[in-house]
Amino acid sequence: MSATPRSGGLRVCARWQEGELDAWQVQLVRPPVGRALVGLPPELALARIPLYYSLCAHAQQEAGRLALLAAGCAHGTPPEAWRLWGECLHEQLWRLLLDWPAQWGDEPLRAPFARWRASLGERACLKAATRALLTELLPDGPESGFVARGLALLQAEGAAPAVGAGLVARARGVFEQLAALEQDQPYPLGMDGSPGEACGAAWVHTARGALRHHVQLAQGRVAEWRVDAPTDRNFADEAGIVKRLPVWLPSPARARQAVERAVLLLDPCVPFTVEVVNA
């Protein structure tokens, strides 16, 4: 069996027997960034967060900034909301355009995604590019264009209803985030803490759910910093995957495909591998 990289990765294994899966192993490894921040002055820890994460750097830093603020320690400035909406759209579009088409045998939509990514640095460009992308690829809404093709092919092969529903939900999410971006909506986030005890917590919305940071300071330095990402919760065990599987898995190959799709629906923020062994 393949090992899970310590720099970040997810490995899902199960045993196929008479149409069902058992003997699950779900192994998630994320880099120990929180531990690496312990002992640093808070402002230095905050500056390092976006350097350490390959995805959602704005959301990570904002969650950290708010957690520190809740602990009574004000550093840094909040990012403009459009940058957070752009980051959220990036994650949604990555899955939708690069990963999902392969599930019905099509090539990833790399070229339109690459063109869209070039707009991420400026608010007006981001709005225009996102609107243009959706007009090109989903001209009549979330269930049109390449998503309509995917839904038809997935239905024809008998994929679990959760698969089509998850695909549509992701496409709808992109339209909702574009609306939020166009209307300059405030970005969803929150914080809570006890400045007297130098501890604080904060959450920031991301494409995968709430990203949470918990901070404890002592003598002007970071004593504890915990990062709780949606991927940690979604892959704490196999429950979320099992819930998204069809009732009957006729072969190990079909079971592997179904597990892979269930993992995609739960959307880990790290690379993943799926292994199904035949009992």
Binding site: A3, S7, P31, Y52
Partner: peptide, 22 residues
């Protein structure tokens, strides 16, 4: 600069170890 910070924080050694093992 980023690589130096990661090395100082002890994050790099693990990741490079993985790359070599793989």
């Amino acid at each position: 600069q980023t690589l130096a910070l990661m090395a100082e924080a002890g994050l790099l050694e693990q990741a490079l170890g993985d790359a070599r093992e793989g």
